[in-house]
Design a protein around this nucleic acid. Sequence first.
DNA 1: TCCATATTTCGATATCTCTAGAAACATTGC
DNA 2: GCAATGTTTCTAGAGATATCGAAATATGGA
Lengths: 119, 119
Amino acid sequence: MEERQALSIFAALSQETRLRIVRLLVVAGEPGLPAGAIAEEMGTAASTMSFHLKELEQAGLVRSRRESRSIIYTAEYGALSGLIRFLMEDCCAGRREVCEPALAVATGCCAPDAPRACS
Amino acid sequence: MEERQALSIFAALSQETRLRIVRLLVVAGEPGLPAGAIAEEMGTAASTMSFHLKELEQAGLVRSRRESRSIIYTAEYGALSGLIRFLMEDCCAGRREVCEPALAVATGCCAPDAPRACS
DNA sequence: TCCATATTTCGATATCTCTAGAAACATTGC
DNA sequence: GCAATGTTTCTAGAGATATCGAAATATGGA
C-alpha cells in the first residue's frame, strides 16, 4: 500500500461516525447495507451519511453497488488488511516491538479452533 | 485500546508530516531524536514541529524526555502494536478476511530467520 | 406519465487543523 | 547575572472538514 492511500485511510478512520460505519459494514459482510439503513443506524441526515460514505469509498474502505432503488455499501476487507500490513512493514522497520505483539494477536484470531470473532 | 484513543491515533497518522515523524522515530529507536533534529529533517519551522509532536504525544504515539537543553522524542511501540490489535479485533469481528492476511505478514516479519526490517 | 422512494449534490455555516513568526520559557556556560 | 541555545506557547490567518436543509437525480410501480 502506498503512503498516499494509507494517509487517506487514516483520515477516513479518524472520524467517529466513519469508524462506526466501517465496523457496521465489516459485520454486515458480503450482502452489505443500503445507505439509508446506515444513516438510520447512525442517526445522521441522509446528506451527511452520503458525505461520509463518499469519503470511505474514496479511501478504498468500502465499495458500493446499486440494487434497484437502493445503493448497497460493503466493506473492502483488502483495504483493512492492507493498512495493517502497512503499519507492520512501515513501523516494524528495523524493530520487532511492533510486529511481535501483532503476530500474537493474529495467531489468536486465526487459530483453527478460534471462534468466528477475533476478540 | 479504547475507541477514543484509536480515533486519536488515526487522526495523528493522517497527516503526512506526522506519519513521517513516527517512521523516523521508530527507526531511531531507544535513543530517540531531539525536536530540533526532527524539524530540520522535515524542513518545518520549530513551532510547527512542536505542534505536531504535541499531537503525537497526546495520541500516545511518542514520548518525550528532557536531556539538558534538548527534548528527546521516542516512538511508543506499544501504541502502534495496540492500533494493529484494535484493527484486527475490531475489524475481524465475525470475519477472517482481515486477520488472515495480517497473520501472514506478521509471520514473515517475525520469523526467527527474518531480517531486522520486516518488509 | 406521474408519483413515491432512495440517494446524491449543492449551498451555507460552524468548527477544526495547519502553518509560521514573535514572544516566552528552560537550561547551560561564562 | 547575562547571553546563547533549544523548545514551547501565543496569535493570527488560510484552508479543510462536518453538518444539514433544499434541490436535483435515479429507479420502480400504478
